[in-house]
Amino acid sequence: MLVIGELKCLHCGHISGRWVGPKGSPLTTSGLRPLPPGADPAALVRCGRCAGPVYLDDATPVASTYRLRRIQRMREQLAAFDARPRRGHAA
């Protein structure tokens, strides 16, 4: 399950980006997503407006419908594979 949260400044409250990552994983710069696309994710460690420290706010789980559909398709494929008759193999 993925978790998403906003990077908010402790000083001015400006939201400079988001963090996205698996639940329970450590916060790393690879999970940082800047709000203006194309900005340097490593620059998100400080506020873009006042250069104050940022913290992760409102971390909530995200259920991706694409991911859920993909898991369902894989389960259906595995069930079909297990249900097919086996020929020529002795147990």
Rank of each mutant, 00 (worst) to 15 (best):
K8T: 11
T28Q: 07
R73E: 06
G31I: 06
T28D: 05
R69M: 13
L32W: 04
A39C: 09
A83P: 00
R46Y: 02
L7I: 02
T60K: 12
A59D: 03
P61G: 14
S30G: 14
A59Q: 11
L68C: 04
P53N: 08
T28P: 03
L32P: 00
T65G: 13
C47G: 06
V54M: 07
A80Q: 11
A39D: 04
Y55D: 11
S30M: 12
L68Y: 04
M1Q: 01
R49L: 15
M74H: 05
A79K: 05
P41M: 07
R70A: 15
A42D: 13
P85L: 15
R84T: 10
P34D: 10
E6Q: 12
G48S: 14
G38M: 07
R33G: 02
R33Y: 11
R33Q: 10
G13R: 10
G48V: 06
A91N: 07
S16L: 08
D58M: 07
G21Q: 03
R18P: 00
R73Q: 05
A51E: 02
P26I: 12
H89S: 08
H89D: 02
V3K: 04
A83K: 12
R67Y: 15
V54T: 05
G52L: 05
L44Y: 02
Q72R: 14
D57M: 05
E6I: 06
G38S: 14
A90L: 15
A79P: 00
P34Q: 11
